[in-house]
Design a protein around this nucleic acid. Structure first.
Length: 583
RNA sequence: GCCCCCGUAGCUCAAUGGACAGAGCGCCUGACUUCGAAUCAGUAGGUUGCAGGUUCGAGUCCUGCCGGGGGCGCCA
């Protein structure tokens, strides 16, 4: 292993101060990005001074090495440059290091075969960051990535035709957590539920409810073809009979369907809001599909499409000629029976989002079985002269619900369903959220109910919450024993490896938030939470916090523990979970 | 038939093209007279579905197979 000790070039003191102040002031800059900038500048300077040949340098990337002995950050830029520079990576790396400025947060850097540049943070600087985290408090981790841009996150949006089944829980948790993370990253976030209160399914729902209602009154009426078979409709029908008797059978059928549909939708939404609330999921707005037809959005969109020559009549239906814009096939917008299809609503809805409400960015959270709809939607945006890049569809795979290894089908129409509310009350909100959040979006989740209940006491979420409660307990103990907490504690006393590992982990939160937002993959947050808790538990084992024999060190450790509590609490909040003072 | 996703330890899953592929659960062994043992430390467990290719370097990218799921509707 070849090691080159960093020989720092003289840089003006001013530069050093500038570098340091960025972090001490808790500004929204990522340490990682700063190191990237330092390396890029050093590379350019090496070229300018003739230590490296002229070539167009690759983008500098740094990562946290898996092996801590390789430092806090490492970069492969020298290896990436080898071909371009026609030089050995190790030599390139050494040249870059010769021009790396001395910065207060860096302890040094080294070149390691086959050409990694490994960077070590200054440990006394690290210890001082405890104060930075403490000062930032609940805002620690916030970024200015969004720069106040308005983003809408639309999630759940299940048809309002009955209780939310458990499959919808994944959508809810994903969307809610993404919204939390986007807000932390500096976006102005609006959370929306799209209520499909128009169209064919809703009509089937109304007809089914009417049939159940009539049955409850002793009439021999069958459910409609492909109607809703769930037992909940029988319960609701009984409710209606108790409240209104034969009222709905005494009016014309069409009128009764309209009235019962309206009643059923309201009933459903009330339950959904309650059940989602139990899961910690809330919305800023419940947007009615029907309103798109009532307030003219749909008409405007049709005019635009017609004006651009993108509508054509065929077989009695109105088609959107997506193929004219490069789409794979044309799509029916208005059926031959004169009713608009779901695609018509979706175009109008997105027109409303982008044009009428002016969101800079729209994120739709869809289950993977809607994947085929993504290119259609993008083409539709193109047709409306909206940049399709402003729409991101987050697709997630399905949840396969099992009970003792046997699959339970989740179908509202078939009626064999496990509801979100049941699972939340059986397993617990925090455990459900954690389990659903831990998997990457593309992974199918096998969720065994029996296993989930049984494992919930072993669930990682309790591991994280326990760390939080443990810290709370330290502070209770401190108060009982008359400790006066010193906010100005001497942080330079924090030199133990377990202390510094914990500090390092605290400092990673901004990067984790950045990662989850850049990739729209909140599952990274759960792994961070676990790692952070583990780091604390190890610190707790190795470092007695309250020690009358060493009060100065105790004060420093209390500050570190307070910072850890703050960050753990923040992470739990971002994931939508409770941070218990005791458990 | 065409398109998309997945295949990693017994199970459930991680791993921005990097260094020796990691956690949790489960199994086994230790640690509570000291701030909470819902914890910690350690052991065992792998041909990353298969075969090629690109690359200094592949679980990751490309091609072809095998297996699982999803999509290709005047349903949403």
């Amino acid at each position: 292993m070849l090691v080159v000790i960093l020989t720092a070039e003289k840089r003006s003191a001013r530069t050093c101060v500038d570098q340091r102040s960025m972090f001490l002031e808790g500004e929204l800059t990522l340490l990682r990005d700063d190191i990237v900038a330092l390396l890029a500048a050093a590379l350019r300077k090496a070229q300018k001074k003739g230590d490296l040949p002229k070539f167009d340098p690759p983008a500098v990337a740094v990562e946290h090495p898996k092996d801590a002995s390789f430092g806090d950050y490492s970069s492969n830029v020298a290896m990436q440059s080898a071909r371009l520079a026609r030089m050995a990576p190790v030599k390139i790396a050494a040249a870059i290091l010769r021009h790396l400025p001395q910065v207060d947060y860096l302890a040094g850097a080294e070149v390691v075969h086959p050409g990694f540049i490994n960077i070590h943070l200054n440990e006394s600087w690290l210890a001082r960051q405890v104060a930075v985290v403490r000062r930032a408090g609940p805002t620690w981790g916030n970024l200015d990535k969004g720069q106040g841009r308005r983003v809408q996150v639309e999630y759940v949006s299940a048809n309002p035709t009955g209780p939310l089944h458990f499959g919808g829980a994944r959508n809810a948790v994903l969307g809610d957590t993404l919204a939390n993370l986007l807000a932390a990253a500096g976006y102005r976030v609006q959370r929306e539920y799209y209520v499909n209160d128009a169209g064919l399914q809703i009509r089937k729902f109304g007809e089914s409810l009417l049939a159940r209602y009539a049955q409850a009154l002793g009439r021999d009426v069958p459910l409609p073809e492909e109607g809703y078979h769930g037992a909940y409709l029988q319960e609701w029908a009984a409710e209606l009979v108790r409240a209104d008797g034969e009222h709905y059978l005494q009016m014309p059928r069409a009128e009764a369907i309209t009235a019962l549909t309206e009643w059923g939708v309201q009933r459903t939404l009330r339950d959904m809001e309650r059940d989602l609330g139990q899961l910690g999921v809330r919305f800023d707005r419940w947007f009615s599909e029907k309103s798109l037809y009532e307030d003219g959005a749909f008409g405007e969109v049709m005019n635009i499409l017609r004006g651009r020559g993108l509508l054509r009549e065929k077989d009695g239906a109105v088609w959107f000629t997506a193929t004219a814009l490069g789409g794979s096939k044309d799509e029916v917008i208005i059926r031959s029976n004169g009713t608009p299809g779901y695609f018509a609503s979706d175009i109008a809805y997105h027109y409303d989002k982008f044009v009428r409400r002016g969101f800079d960015w729209v994120i739709d959270v869809w289950a993977v079985d809607h994947q085929g709809h993504v290119p259609r939607m993008k083409t539709a945006l193109q047709a409306l002269e909206i940049d399709p890049a402003r729409l991101t569809v987050v697709l997630y795979d399905l949840v396969k619900l099992l009970r003792n290894g046997k699959e339970v089908k989740l179908s509202k129409r078939a009626g064999d369903m496990v509801t979100l509310a049941e699972v939340v009350s059986e397993v617990g909100k925090d455990a459900v959220r954690f389990m659903l959040l831990t998997r990457s979006n593309e992974a199918t989740i096998d969720f065994d109910l029996a296993l989930a209940v049984q494992e919930s006491s072993e669930n990682p979420v309790y591991y994280v919450q326990y760390a939080y409660a443990r810290i709370a307990s330290i502070f209770r103990k401190a108060a009982e024993n008359g400790w006066q907490i010193d906010v100005e504690a001497d942080l330079s006393l924090l030199v133990h490896p377990a202390e510094l590992r914990l500090v390092r982990r605290l400092l990673m939160l901004p990067e984790v938030i950045d990662l989850t937002v850049a990739r729209l993959q909140p599952h990274h947050l759960t792994y961070y939470a676990r790692d952070l808790a583990a780091e604390f538990h190890q610190f707790y084992r190795d470092c007695q916090v309250l020690d009358r024999q060493n009060e100065a060190l105790s004060q420093s450790r209390l500050q570190l523990a307070a910072a850890a509590k703050e960050v753990l609490g923040r992470v739990l909040a971002l994931m939508g979970m409770n941070a218990p003072e005791r458990m």
